[in-house]
Amino acid sequence: MPSDALIEKLVGDLRPVRRLSVPRGLAILAVVGAGELAVWLACGMVRPDFARTAVWPTTWWKLAGPALVALAGAAAMVRSLSPDRSARPGLRVMAGLIGVVLAAALLLVALTPADTLLLQRIDPGYGIVCVARMAALSVPMLVATALLARDGAPADPDATALAGGVGSACWGAFVFAFACPIDDPVYLGIWYAIGCLVTALGGRCLIGRLARW
């Protein structure tokens, strides 16, 4: 068995600690998210006709869909920072939410008259710009999530990283949605999904590395 010297060393190193609870973790993420959103809005990044479009179903989809998945991701990630709790139940909830959001996108596509060519509706040139902006806007949440994961002790780092990556990516999409000038559900369904997927994969890799202990 390890010698008493190790125990003496650990006892000698003992300091009072601030516990990493679920409410505290969520509060940290909420402060980061609210701060980023406040800065984004204060910089005048909201689309000029936002008041008029705010009642449109596509605007609701753009805002509510990513926000719900981001909240579920944050909850699943923070919950799993203690080794005796897994992120997997939260991931199942997120998968269900993503399914509902994608189904809602399909419904919006079906209800929207298609009077232009599909390629024009998808608009790949601007779509790539959207993806880059969503990725950039997910960085603050990604960094906060990664630091929390590093501080915690997730017993299933891959699941924690996936929840954190998807949650951060969706938060970036939510913040971007205030500025997004496009309302075509085909465009939104494709490029928001790609933006979230790309950022989530990057986030999963980053958080996965930092979450090991």
Binding site: L6, I7, D13, R19, S82, P83, A155, W213
Partner: peptide
């Protein structure tokens, strides 16, 4: 494992049982 318990002791929630936390750290 003793070092991990020491370094991650702040993740133990004192309102929950200790044994599942300990077993999870040991299993990891």
């Amino acid at each position: 494992t003793l070092i991990a318990i020491h370094e991650k002791r702040h993740t133990y929630d004192r309102d929950r049982p200790f044994k599942p936390w300990l077993v999870a750290v040991a299993r990891y």
